[in-house]
Design a protein around this nucleic acid. Structure first.
Length: 229
DNA sequence: AAGCAAGTCAACCGCCTCGGA
DNA sequence: CTCCGAGGCGGTTGACTTGCT
């Protein structure tokens, strides 16, 4: 027996939401809060799949959404976060108040990709397009793969080199402490409460009280500053 | 004005993760 | 420990809009 579908597709609407459906969903969530999405459509009198309701609320109806164009600062932040996290849109969205993962994903694919390409930067690797990847480096993450072990032991110093980045490695970096064995640049002890702008090397905000943090300007990025939700 | 191509973005699909039974 | 269901996520689709010929 297979998994039961998330909703009874035969009796659900699909496609664009109507004003009335939006109103019903907003009214229900205002009254009861976000809760069990599976049972919400029936309770709210909507002929929609629970997932569809959730998506509509999160991506479009939530009152805290910031509609409108992305600012230049947001652009740069997205680019930096993408270089660290890859296509982890929800994580990126978590750092941009009022923006949704779907919005950022669309914006990336329509605007930022082109922007980076026009700068001569590969939007996937964040490296110059005409730069040849280093020869004879093959990294595999297959378990038991000897190449993987060798490469992982031989190449960690590469993390200190801004010109060399392994895109698939980014995700690992963001959830793992930086390589610690004989670091070329000794990490300075992080002060408590470093704001996210400083951790990314962005200009300080007026309320920023951080000091002495190794941001991008110092050439060393503390990947642990990008915390999971 | 009409037709077409390219761009945009809301919504869907299917897989993955996590927590509870 | 295993199974199952719900929620969450990223990739993709397709309807709609805009710009160009």
């Amino acid at each position: 027996m297979g998994r039961s579908p998330c909703c009874e597709k035969a009796h659900t609407n699909k496609g664009a939401w109507t004003k009335e459906e939006d109103d019903r969903l907003i009214a229900y969530i205002r009254a009861h809060g976000e809760g069990c999405w599976r049972s919400l459509p029936k309770a709210a009198g909507l002929l929609r799949c629970g997932k569809s309701c959730r998506l509509r609320w999160i991506n479009y109806l939530r009152p805290d959404l910031k509609r409108g164009n992305f600012t230049e600062e947001e652009d740069e932040l997205i680019i930096k976060l993408h270089s660290l996290l890859g296509n982890k849109w929800s994580l990126i969205a978590g750092r941009l108040p009022g923006r949704t993962d779907n919005e950022i994903k669309n914006y990336w694919n329509t605007h930022i990709r082109r922007k980076l390409l026009s700068r001569g930067v590969d939007p996937v690797t964040h490296r110059p397009i005409n730069e040849q990847p280093p020869a004879n480096i093959t990294i595999s993450f297959e378990k038991g793969d000897e190449d993987c072990k060798i490469s992982a032991l031989e190449k960690p110093f590469k993390l200190q080199e801004p010109q060399f980045k392994i895109p698939d490695l980014n995700l690992e970096l963001c959830i793992s402490p930086p390589f610690q064995e004989e670091p070329l640049i000794k990490p300075v002890k992080r002060e408590a409460g470093v704001c996210f702008s400083c951790s990314l090397g962005l200009p300080k905000s007026p309320e920023c009280k951080c000091s002495n943090f190794l941001g991008l300007s110092s050439g060393f990025l503390d990947f642990r500053s990008v915390e999971m939700k």
